[in-house]
Each structure stands twice: as structure tokens, then as C-alpha cells.
């Protein structure tokens, strides 16, 4: 009898602690492109605000959005926009979705450092990833087959790149890798490889060509590493990186979002290889009170 009482007390106190702990913890989930950046932001935020806890996990934008729809996290990282279907689904679960833009990404197309390919047009990239061009000689390279490295379908980058550049389906022969870092590693080892990753993953890496991309043949080529080209939209595959929240942010969640958008937060964004948000998105964020 005594043992049972002790066990019950233990279970109850554990459950209580979980409730208390859960209140202070901000749960962030989603995009693999954003995970390093948001982890860095949250670490510095926690250092400056002792007693605040943030848990950041990955899994892909699709995973984060699914968690937000089911009200399983406070903030969903997404490197793509939520689909109207997903917003509806969230509404049915009583989650009213608001979007905050926290950084800009120049989605980078990469080849191996020993590849002679340094620039391509958006059209050529589309053809390569749709599987219509399968040999490097068709785009001015050596006579060698192309190995494609892309993401899995739960990735926001997978969806964004498909909708923005391919406007069609990926080649069935594309290798589906488990994250940005895996694509970087694979392309570094494969001289015939081509892949796409967030710019934060290529800035400090050697052994890669970060391709310059032109929107159309005849237009000038721009690099995702140039902050002006990305901000001005001259680099054709730039995109906002988003965080989605349930309702109007308040309390701890709001404080963290404000930190991310503050000059200090935006400086961390730059240090992590991404770009600070331009004026139009600063205005956009004001709509949710940030």
C-alpha cells in the first residue's frame, strides 16, 4: 500500500512538473534550412534571458506546418509558404495562422568544386532537375551524365524550388537526401553532382561551386552570395524564410520573435549566412504587431 502511494505521488509530481515546464518552453519545429539559424538565435536569446527555454527541432517545413496545424508547437519554421489547403485545415482545428518573415535566403544551386560549371540560367536549371537535360555537355560542360541531389517531399525547399524553378515534377532519378547538409556533402564528393541548398549552408564551405544564376538567357548572372543581388531580386531564386504562429503572438513567443527581428537578431541572421529582411517584409511583419 505504501509503495502504491509513493508511486502515485511520484507520478503526480512528474505530471505537474511537466505542465509547469511546458508553460515556459517555446516549441519550435520545422524547416531544415532554418534550423541552424533559429537554434543560434534561441541560444543567444536564452543566454540573455535566463529562465526562458526554447526547444528547436527540425524535420522539414512540412513537419513543422503539420505540427502547427495540430497545435503541437508554438512556432513552425517554414522555408515555403503554407498552402491554402493547410491554412484551411488549421482553421478547422481552431488554429488561426499568422506568418512572420525572419530572414531572406538566396537558394543556392551548387556543383562540385572540380566541375567547370559556374553559371546557369534558371531555365537550364529547371530542365536539369526535370530530367530533360541529363548530360553536362548540353550546358557547356564535359561529356558526363548529371547526378541530381534534391530534398525529400517534406522539405519546404523541395516545394519552393519545384514551384519557382521547375514548374513541373522533379526527375524520378533525383536522389532524395535527408537535409541541406547531406546535399552539400554529396555534391562535395561527386564531380557530376548538382544540388540546391539554403545559402546559409554554402557560405563557409570549400570544394563547391555556388552557381551564378540568370533569370533568362541574355540577362546578367547574379550570385546568391551577394547580399545586394538577393535583396534586389536580381538573383532569381531568392525567397523569404518564414515562421508561422497560432494567432497574434503574445508573451514569450512575441518576445522571441521581436528579438529575431531586432537589429541584433538580424545581425545573427547575417552571420549565419542568410540576409536581413528588406523593407517590404518589415512592413509585412507589422501587420501581426511586430
Amino acid at each position: 500500500m505504501k509503495k502504491i502511494v509513493i508511486a502515485l505521488v511520484l507520478i503526480l509530481s512528474f505530471a505537474l512538473c511537466q505542465n509547469v515546464c511546458a508553460q515556459d518552453m517555446i516549441q519550435i519545429k520545422g524547416s531544415d534550412t532554418l534550423i541552424n539559424l533559429v537554434q543560434m538565435l534561441s541560444e543567444i536569446y536564452m543566454q540573455k534571458n535566463p529562465g526562458k527555454y526554447i526547444a528547436v527541432t527540425g524535420g522539414g517545413s512540412g513537419t513543422g506546418v503539420a505540427a502547427l496545424i495540430n497545435d503541437k508547437c508554438d512556432i513552425a519554421n517554414a522555408s515555403r509558404l503554407m498552402k491554402p489547403k493547410e491554412v484551411d485545415q488549421a482553421a478547422r482545428n481552431g488554429v488561426s495562422v499568422n506568418r512572420v518573415v525572419i530572414a531572406m535566403d538566396g537558394l543556392s544551386v551548387i556543383t562540385n568544386g572540380n566541375s567547370p560549371i559556374h553559371q546557369l540560367t534558371a531555365d537550364e536549371i529547371g530542365k536539369i532537375f526535370r530530367g530533360e537535360i541529363t548530360n553536362w555537355s548540353d550546358v557547356g560542360g564535359p561529356d558526363s551524365s548529371i547526378t541530381l541531389y534534391g530534398r525529400q517531399s517534406n522539405s519546404g525547399t523541395f516545394v519552393f524550388f519545384r514551384d519557382a524553378i521547375l514548374k513541373g515534377d522533379y526527375s524520378q532519378n533525383m536522389n532524395r537526401m535527408n537535409g541541406n547538409a547531406q546535399i552539400v556533402e554529396a555534391v562535395k564528393q561527386d564531380v557530376s553532382g548538382i544540388g540546391y541548398v539554403g545559402v546559409g549552408y554554402v557560405k563557409a564551405v570549400t570544394g563547391l561551386n555556388v552557381l551564378k544564376v540568370a533569370a533568362r538567357a541574355g540577362m546578367s548572372y547574379a550570385s546568391p552570395l551577394s547580399s545586394e543581388d538577393v535583396k534586389s531580386g536580381k538573383y532569381p531564386i531568392s525567397r523569404p524564410l518564414n515562421q508561422y504562429v497560432n494567432g497574434t503572438p503574445s508573451g514569450d513567443t512575441k518576445a522571441f520573435l521581436e528579438f529575431e527581428l531586432s537589429p541584433e537578431g538580424q545581425k545573427i541572421v547575417e552571420e549565419e549566412g542568410f540576409f536581413p529582411i528588406p523593407l517590404e517584409y518589415q512592413e509585412f511583419n507589422k501587420k501581426v504587431g511586430l
Binding site: 513537419t63 506546418v65 489547403k85 517531399s153 517534406n154 526527375s171 524520378q172 532524395r176 537526401m177
Partner: peptide, 30 residues
């Protein structure tokens, strides 16, 4: 194994098994 969904051509090409497809897609499916 690379997980390319195309029909595998040889043992030296990428393959995608039943288990990997479930693991990749179940996390994000509505």
C-alpha cells in the same frame, strides 16, 4: 541508398524501398 523514386536500373543505382517511402512521407502527410 539515395532514395530516388525511379525504377532501379542496376545494383549501382539509387533505390527507394517501401520502408524509406513510408518514413519520408508519413511525417508531412495531411
Amino acid at each position: 541508398t539515395g532514395c530516388a523514386p525511379a525504377m532501379p536500373k542496376s545494383m549501382l543505382g539509387p533505390v527507394r524501398t517501401l520502408t524509406s517511402s513510408i518514413a519520408i512521407e508519413l511525417g508531412e502527410v495531411a
